[in-house]
């Protein structure tokens, strides 16, 4: 097992005809992901890589192909609308890769999703990978922009707000031979669909996941909330890393959500909360894998 997606998951890609969306749709196909449809308004009837049908609407794509997961590669001004279209079409899991969606748009999207059974991952995230058993971990399900080949099918669940730090953790656990069950990038925006805590709960219930790496950064209190839950509820060993110990207060460090405001959201406070919950905190990003290995 794995969480959220598995090799047979049927994926559609909104924005498949864009440069960015197209590049990564191709890489996902090469990885073995079942990309069954693309959606670009006005380009219905065409095909992508002469194998994937393109539709005008998500509704039509779902009806015709049975896709249950949608990856959003739509530019920021139209991304909110694209997410709501996927919710309306009955998509079960939306993975929003787009960076730079206005906060007000995301607020409305989240509010509109209240009561629906759809889960949103992201936005501003690298996506999800459940590694496969083929060479370079192919044969798995890759949704988003992560490099597939750094993965290895295994037992570590990875959840992170940052893309490149996820790759570091993945690469380190691959080198150690541990491999990953599923890797989830939840994104660097202040308002996102799925939190660290949501993903930890899924990993906790997943028989294939034996241990967890959680990567956080300054800003907000999501890591503290996750730690609070881990303390009494998590059955599996958790290692963590928090980025931004040297970030100056009040400055937005690349990610829209990575900002210390009003003295809240500091790396120190987060590390203390994690340690207090019995989580092994890596002092440097080079030691995420070894810190986890040390508690197994």
């Amino acid at each position: 097992m794995s969480i959220l997606v598995e090799p047979n998951t049927k994926v559609l890609i909104q924005g498949i005809t864009g440069g960015f969306g197209g590049t990564h749709a191709k890489l996902s196909l090469d990885y073995g992901t079942k990309v069954v449809a693309g959606v670009t308004p006005g380009k219905g009837g065409q095909t992508f890589e002469s194998s994937v049908p393109i539709f005008d609407t998500v509704d039509e794509a779902v009806t015709e192909t049975g896709a249950t997961v949608s990856a959003i590669f739509v530019p920021p001004p139209f991304a909110g609308d694209a997410i709501m279209e996927a919710v309306d079409a009955g998509i079960e899991l939306i993975v929003a890769i787009t960076e730079g969606i206005p906060v007000a748009d995301m607020m409305r999207v989240k509010s509109m999703m209240t009561g629906s059974n759809c889960r949103l991952i992201g936005p501003n995230c690298p996506g999800i990978v459940t590694p496969g058993t083929g060479p370079d971990s192919t044969g798995g399900c890759r949704i988003g922009i992560s490099p597939g080949y750094i993965h290895k099918k295994g037992s570590v669940g990875v959840v992170s707000r940052s893309g490149t730090l996820t790759y570091e953790a993945v690469w380190q656990t691959t080198q150690l031979g541990l491999g990953q069950s599923t890797c989830v990038g939840i994104g660097g925006d202040p308002i996102n669909g799925t939190s660290h805590l949501d993903v930890l709960k899924l990993f906790n219930d997943d028989p294939e996941t034996e241990s967890i790496i959680m990567i956080g950064e300054i800003g907000g209190t999501a890591e503290e909330e996750a730690a609070e839950w881990v303390k009494d509820n998590c059955k599996k060993p958790v290692a963590a890393f928090i980025a931004g110990a040297t970030a100056p207060p009040g400055r937005r460090m690349g990610h829209a959500g990575a900002i210390i405001s009003g003295g809240k959201g500091t790396a120190e406070a987060k590390k203390a909360a994690l340690k207090g919950a019995g989580i092994a905190v890596a002092e440097t990003p080079s030691e995420m894998g070894s810190t986890l290995a040390s508690i197994l």
Binding site: A247, T284, P285
Partner: peptide
């Protein structure tokens, strides 16, 4: 550095 999270982490490790 490439990536915001890794860029922050790189600053941190220099300090470390």
């Amino acid at each position: 550095v490439n990536g915001a999270g890794l860029a922050m982490a790189t600053m941190d490790i220099i300090k470390h």
